[in-house]
Design a protein around this nucleic acid. Sequence first.
DNA 1: CTGCCAAGAGAGCCTGACTT
DNA 2: AAGTCAGGCTCTCTTGGCAG
Length: 258
Amino acid sequence: MLTHSFIFLTRFGYSRERKLWEQGVVDWDGFLSRERIRFISRHWKERYDKQILEAMRSLSIMDLSFFQRYLPKREVWRVYYSLRHNPDFRVFFLDIETDEYGNLTVISLFDGEDCKTFIRGFNLDFFLLKKLLNNASMLITFNGSSFDIPILKHYVRLNNNILHFDLRPLLVRLGYNMGLKEIESKLGIERSDEVRSLRGFDALQLWKCFKRERNKECLRLLIEYNRYDAINLKPIVEFSINKILEKTLENLDFLVIS
DNA sequence: CTGCCAAGAGAGCCTGACTT
DNA sequence: AAGTCAGGCTCTCTTGGCAG
């Protein structure tokens, strides 16, 4: 999908990108191989050629900072879609819990197969966490733009070539303007009985309970809750990218995307 | 080259929604 | 409560294409 994208070009929006596709310019190679393109002046064609060559170069060496800078946030899903099976593309589904003062208490990183959880006061080591995070190509969250990522940045400095894919705005576009738990139940994604009824507010109480009473059961539940929040993001991503791809390519049946 | 027009990109503002 | 984003709205500006 990424190599079919032109939305990162200067002064390009959805309509101009679609115009290209409709006239048969469906990928970067197609764009570069044409001398002239209708509705693009010679002057701009030259500039766009350079931008596309730069995109190609970045992609070939997996330096995603180019896309971090020029791809609109709401289109970051295209990077995930194109690279999700590439072994050099490392993703973390991420979720954090905090106490009532906004201090990080628990964080889970799910790489698609294995879920690592770090707990304040036990195994949470910010040096190690930083090392782990900065080895990733993309972090995927739900509402992380306004919650998880800013808080995380208080503790660790993240490299600027890490892409952040926030699922919430995408789901809003797809008509799911609601919280994570409600989306899960709409999509039939399950949680264990113990944590099914828990919400964000309860996470604060669980940590409080653990701190006050040293109650291990409270902590265990909080960890379980947090891990589900991270792990369940994966099926939601799969659902969302298929939906948004369908929507993006509506009425363009000749366009087959890899 | 100059002048005009319509399309559409982009900026600014407001609102509503979510996370713990 | 803080922080961020997208959508809706309006207004402005840039641009390609066309005519002469």
